[in-house]
Write a protein that binds this DNA or RNA. Sequence first.
DNA 1: ACCTGAACACCGTTCAAGT
DNA 2: ACCTGAACACCGTTCAAGT
Lengths: 195, 195
Amino acid sequence: MSAAPASARNDKTDVVAAAMRVLADSGLPGLSMRRIADEIDVQVSALYWHFPNKQALLAAVSAQIVGAGSAPPEVDAIAQALRDRLLAHRDGAEIVSSSLALGLLELPARAALVSAARDMGLDAAAADVAADTIVHYVIGYTFHEQQRLHAAVVGAADASVDLVPEGLDDRAGDFDAGLAMIIAGVRATASVSGR
Amino acid sequence: MSAAPASARNDKTDVVAAAMRVLADSGLPGLSMRRIADEIDVQVSALYWHFPNKQALLAAVSAQIVGAGSAPPEVDAIAQALRDRLLAHRDGAEIVSSSLALGLLELPARAALVSAARDMGLDAAAADVAADTIVHYVIGYTFHEQQRLHAAVVGAADASVDLVPEGLDDRAGDFDAGLAMIIAGVRATASVSGR
DNA sequence: ACCTGAACACCGTTCAAGT
DNA sequence: ACCTGAACACCGTTCAAGT
């Protein structure tokens, strides 16, 4: 394929790719600057030529996780697609959550949610609120879920305390039910303000 | 008052109190085991007599932040009270979020939300979903807000990227609007299943 | 344009030993 | 019951210097 020759010098995308590999192997706790540097046979300090600090590197990783461009046109589908992307990468929700909170990441799904909400009849202000509410729900729910996944693997989880109880099998069902409830709220808001 | 004499030996509550002071002074990034130990003039290793590891200590801090016992009886008031407690401590939402995700914290507000949702006419399963949805929204929203607060202080914030746009003044208004939307969804769910 | 080598000021955790 | 002292294996970041 088009993988770079082993001894070439690296650019930003090589560093991000290495970080994605380390993330897949070791998760966020293992994602240190030294491990990333090792992955491309380089000194740690070399990374600081490409990125000013670790948070900036993590923001680039986050952008890769959430992907660029075209989302589906409906609120439900946009939320599901965002969740799928987060679930596709180890600790994806946590990394994205922190980049977002630091203002280092633009979330394409948010813009898509705003216009989908407007299509449902919300005014601009209400559509912003709807988008943020859904984004917080998706990221919060998925973050929680991924942390417990990891905790279960490590064996450190206390199974008696559970924010989302019942069996382990219908995680997706609970997520859907909560999302449906929020969307019902969006619809109710639309029918109040929309006439 | 009843403050312990300066040279006494410490118990769990002294350690947690010291951690709360460090948190208030320096935030979560400054909340290291060494800083906590310094705060009570003790070696770091002494902390490991009281807690098996840092996460367990943080869970005790989280429990202190969310407080014990009696919540108000209505969904809206419970959510507001939880938010107020998180906002009352620097990085409160982040600490609580992580303890919760690791299954190390029981959230009194969650039980209160479940029974408030049942009072609105939801069945048991739907009430669980409603409670989790609201908890994720409150913590997610407040986490985001506190991170940006800190980022703004540090000056590292990129003001051009904003999950929750507009002026800085009506943060609380946006939170309320999102919460109202979710509660509208809860009500809609109740009126569907409730007859 | 991209990297090395070495240093600085930190981390969480363990463990034998003390009182 | 609670703490010391010392060590281990790490961190992120900086900076002069090399090619």
